[in-house]
Design a protein around this nucleic acid. Structure first.
Lengths: 123, 123, 123, 123
DNA sequence: GTGGTCTAGACCACC
DNA sequence: GTGGTCTAGACCACC
């Protein structure tokens, strides 16, 4: 996971975990790796990883069991909730960009439809 | 036009002009303001505006007449070409973001469809 | 490389590099000197050298690798293409000058032929 | 006749007259226009025209009859001599430019030959 | 160390 | 007044 320099690293770690949950790579209830592992792998300070984990907990995605570690919420709707959230933000952004280029939401939808259709043929 | 700090100012000026052309605010053949006007307004150096205008020319969107100014191409397909380009880039990005969250292109399309439908009702 | 005062310095740098490529002194793929070197040697601003290098890139003769340098295109036809271009421009100019003095292209050719023949004998 | 700003105007007038003689537009013995006419037409000072005429005389191309005007030499070889001179200078320059691009005189000749042949077909 | 961006500002060329 | 060239030099991004 390469970092971009324009956003706090801890938020990039948060986003990355959210995406992995949304993709189903991290199932509800799964234990997140210890603070040290990702810190070594990402070459960041363990405090930065802790900051990320605290943010996840603040959002209700994780909980900690003292002495055991940090776990993903066991809420069966967790994945769905995250997917909705990510999808919402991406769609918002797409419609905003298209709006700035003069496309109505309906036109933005049609443009995407066209594109997906073409890509399918290409495959 | 507020600048974001993460991208070159001259490219943000380029994008802004592209969007205005796509929206039909700047018709083909229109004269762009002189280098000095936007420089004063945006509080950037005239060289930065020139850099933006040269990039537009490099992309074939404008031409310059020494002593007269910088003009949008008179190509009647200019607007369409730009709209296609901007739409393409926005869609690409949307599909990429959605892909990272585990959505197939078809799902990404459906999610947008849903969202637009809801927004329409909301209006 | 002495500069003449009637043409932009950056274009004289461009021409000089083109001629060296045409002569085979700079092989395809070769790395051009950094912006700073020729600037010191030619006593011009690094920005002027950069302007020249950007013009070369615009013409498709070079490409840049951020942090590594500016390189001549690896297209094996680069040399030939440049030789054709330079020869074309020189011939155009010769025929134009001769035309102003009342020589038809055929006569201009004959005059050159004569001159080259004499020079060969002289050698 | 538009002037270029990089050479003395009087020499540009000299060259222009030489070319017209070489083209046969001004026959040997012809009277050149008075100082005032070209001065008005070219929007230069009559002194500049006089300077040009003096240069022509210095080169042996003209002579003046007091009270009558300036006349082209009546030497029947005048035209030929000028044509030779202009052709020589143009050829010299062509071979020099081609030499800088790595062409031998023989190659420069061949390149011109090719070009003239193509132009003839094109006509 | 490499090229890229940007400022500040002088001066030129064309109109 | 318009864009074009150039200097001088700061600071950034990528290696």
């Amino acid at each position: 996971m390469p970092f971009d320099l324009t956003r706090p690293i801890y938020l990039q770690i948060v986003d990355n975990i959210c995406r992995r949950v949304a993709r189903g790579e991290l199932p509800p209830g799964a234990r997140l790796p210890s603070l040290r592992d990702p810190a070594l792998e990402l070459e960041v300070n363990p405090n930065t990883v802790q900051h990320a984990y605290q943010e996840l907990e603040r959002r209700g995605l994780t909980f900690t069991r003292r002495g055991e570690g940090t776990f993903l919420s066991e809420d069966p709707q967790l994945v769905d909730r995250l997917r909705q959230e990510l999808a919402g933000r991406a769609a918002e952004r797409y419609l905003a960009e298209m709006g700035e280029a003069g496309f109505s939401p309906a036109e933005a939808l049609a443009a995407l439809q066209e594109r997906v259709k073409i890509a399918e043929r290409g495959v």
